[in-house]
């Protein structure tokens, strides 16, 4: 059996308490003014055995990695891996990046994700943070939202059983409210983000011991 870890995931520089392994969080807010940045910051790990697998749906892998680094991520190709489904990639570097031709290919994304997760794990980075940035193209490109539900059950299931951490970003303004509410059901908690004159605030629902009122986020 896999080694069960009790170590909670921490978030340096963010007004959040550690969360238990296996947690998946939905980050909601305007993508261009806060939610995307928050998602990337939640994925930064200072753990010696920490890895990150990013599913990039709204920007290509190169841009995603640059953004990740700008928000505090350390670019070590052994421990940071990307599934690029943004259809923009030209020369793709190495084994640490996989491509899927369209965000509609949920089966392909799921398999590439598992493959990169296993590579990260096999390299000894067993505390894996998974990011889907963002969920919007997956929902928009899918004719039937039930395919996205199955994808989310599969991904959050792996995160839960492997004691990982899941971070998925969604702009609620891009979808019908019922869809946002139903997608939120797949997550243990929700981090709402807003930008106020350039400064970010967050609040959390669904998890204990987290700020439930709007709380300023330091830079």
């Amino acid at each position: 059996m896999s080694q069960r870890r009790d170590d909670r995931y921490t978030f340096d520089g963010l007004p959040l308490n550690p969360v238990r392994p296996g947690t998946s969080l939905l980050v909601t807010g305007p993508v261009l003014s806060g939610a995307r940045e928050m998602g990337l910051r939640l994925l930064c790990s200072s753990d010696a055995d920490g890895g990150t697998v990013l599913v990039a749906t709204d920007k290509d892998a190169t841009t995603m990695l640059e953004d990740f680094e700008r928000h505090g991520g350390v670019l070590d190709r052994e421990r940071v891996r990307v599934i690029d489904c943004a259809q923009e990639s030209g020369d793709l570097p190495e084994d640490s990046v996989s491509t899927v031709s369209t965000p509609a290919d949920l089966t392909g994304i799921g398999i590439e994700y598992s493959g990169q997760y296993e590579s990260t794990y096999a390299s000894g980075y067993t505390r894996v943070r998974t990011g889907i940035i963002t969920l919007t193209p997956l929902l928009v490109y899918s004719d039937d939202v039930r395919a996205v539900y199955r994808f989310l059950n599969t991904i959050t299931g792996r995160i839960g059983t492997a004691d990982g951490l899941g971070i998925c970003v969604l702009d609620p303004n891009a979808h019908e409210e019922q869809v946002v509410e139903s997608v939120a059901q797949f997550f243990d908690g929700r981090v709402d983000v807003r930008a106020d004159r350039g400064a970010l605030d967050l609040r959390v629902t669904g998890l204990r011991d987290q700020p439930t009122n709007w709380t300023p986020v330091g830079t």
């Binding site: 949920l106 089966t107 598992s114 296993e118 004719d143 994808f151 599969t154």
Partner: peptide, 9 residues
């Protein structure tokens, strides 16, 4: 799209 699966290499 309905064939989402787990994968172990």
């Amino acid at each position: 799209p309905e064939q989402v699966v787990e994968y172990v290499p």
